[in-house]
């Protein structure tokens, strides 16, 4: 969501407003582009071309609420074209690529045959957002976990949680059915939860000297 003042500044071609826009969206755009082109360098090209189109076309926009969706529509269009050109477009579906349609979000090993937890989630007394905001470790760990997600899951989590797009526009932009979008989002969250559990487990094992 773009603030009305920033939107006005963008329309007027204000350089600082574009800097802010670039800072806020560039890395997310690379993440989404990588669903279509698997090489980082190609994703960077696509994002750069997208920015060119944004610089040229932004003055035509009328609605500040539509800016982010508009940017991603340009991006996905360019990334798709580039992906086809590079013949890297996957011929199987995203759900297959992300582990198969029937694969659950949490490993079945953690449940007993009757469907109850056999290896339940660890308590997270240490991960309290208020307490960790000062420390960068958790953000770095979470950032790495987001980057390690399968491409379609990463694209969905970026659009939904980081860019704040709703389910309908995420489906629209990424060409997903509502059901696929929901499954990808759930799997992504489950993996990220697991990544946080892993850091909690690691901290538990760490020698006292490592604790600050």
């Amino acid at each position: 969501m773009i603030e009305p003042q920033s939107f006005e500044a963008l329309l007027q071609g204000d350089e600082q407003a574009f800097r802010a826009l670039i800072r806020r969206h560039h890395a997310n755009m690379i993440a989404v582009a990588m669903r279509y082109v698997r090489e980082r360098a190609a994703a960077e090209d696509v994002v750069q071309e997208t920015w060119m189109a944004v610089f040229r076309g932004v003055a035509k926009l009328r609605d500040p609420a539509a800016v982010v969706g508009w940017i991603y529509a340009i991006l996905v269009n360019k990334a798709r074209t580039r992906g086809k050109r590079d013949r890297r477009t996957l011929t199987f579906s995203d759900l297959d690529a992300d582990g198969g349609p029937s694969q659950p979000a949490v490993s079945p090993d953690r449940f007993a045959a009757n469907g109850r937890w056999s290896n339940p989630p660890l308590p997270w007394d240490d991960i309290d957002p208020e307490r960790i905001v000062g420390g960068r470790q958790i953000w770095a760990h979470l950032g790495a976990a987001i980057e390690a997600l399968p491409p379609a899951q990463r694209a969905v989590i970026v659009m939904r949680e980081i860019e704040g797009q709703d389910a309908a526009s995420t489906c629209d932009l990424l060409g997903l059915s509502e059901a696929n979008q929901r499954v990808l989002l759930h799997r992504a969250r489950a993996r990220l939860r697991q990544a946080l559990e892993d850091i909690v487990a690691m901290k538990g094992d760490a020698p006292a000297a490592d604790k600050t």
Binding site: L142, R189, A190, R193
Partner: peptide, 8 residues
């Protein structure tokens, strides 16, 4: 899972 989402 909710906390994870808020952190993201």
């Amino acid at each position: 899972l909710g906390l994870t989402t808020r952190l993201v």
